[in-house]
Amino acid sequence: MLSDEQYLRYAAQIATATVGEHGQQALARAQVTVVGLGGLGCAAAHYLAGAGIGRLTLLDADVVQLSNLQRQTLYSTADVGHAKADCAAKRLAAVNPTISLQAMQQRVTAANVCQLLSGSDLVLDCTDNLASRYLINDQCYALGIPLLSAAAEGMNGQLLCLHPQHAHGCYQCLYPSGVQQSAACERVGVVGAVVGMMGTLQALQAVKVLTGTEVEWGKLFLFDGLNLSWQSLNLPRSVQCPRCGGNDGN
């Protein structure tokens, strides 16, 4: 049962056919982990907290820098030098004090990733480097947790929705070990609204997944912010993939 306050707080989304009362209860029961609290994670976590995700875990090892404020919308100038995880949790607790927030100033490593992601119903990869992305993909597949992975650079965004129980490819199939990442955001640049939009889309997909709405798993969505155009690509399994290859691979 939803409380009177919950009815009021979430009235706008309860009114939608996608969420409704049952969907709202499902969101309240959900445990979601957001890895990375940069441009993607700020946008995603803000909408997820607002939407009433019952338990939200926030992971980031970094502190807020002045150059983050152009796109990382949970932080203010006074937060510079403070841990992103703590600042984000404080801001989100102000947005929605009725949810449970766990903030950890941690980077995912091979040693801790299993512990950090265990128990999640859904993981959002909002990190900024390939090494973390491989670790998160591997662990989500090992634990059977659906993964919403997004990335942005320049005017371009990518969104990949992965479900270990479905027969499509994984992150490692798309970008096998040995691929080269272009420079990090601050060198190659990124427009704040582009990365914010990709994070927002992660939150949108998360709400759909958690409320039992059908999602197109195994598709790579490409956003061109210059021309406002989208392309979607099918990602089959690679038989050579060390993580998910084998059955149904090609």
């Binding site: 993607l40 997004a150 990335a151 371009n156 965004g157 990090a184 955001c185 190659v188």
Partner: peptide
Amino acid sequence: VTLVTVVAGG
């Protein structure tokens, strides 16, 4: 043919 640049920033 679609060439997709490796993008990992966030």
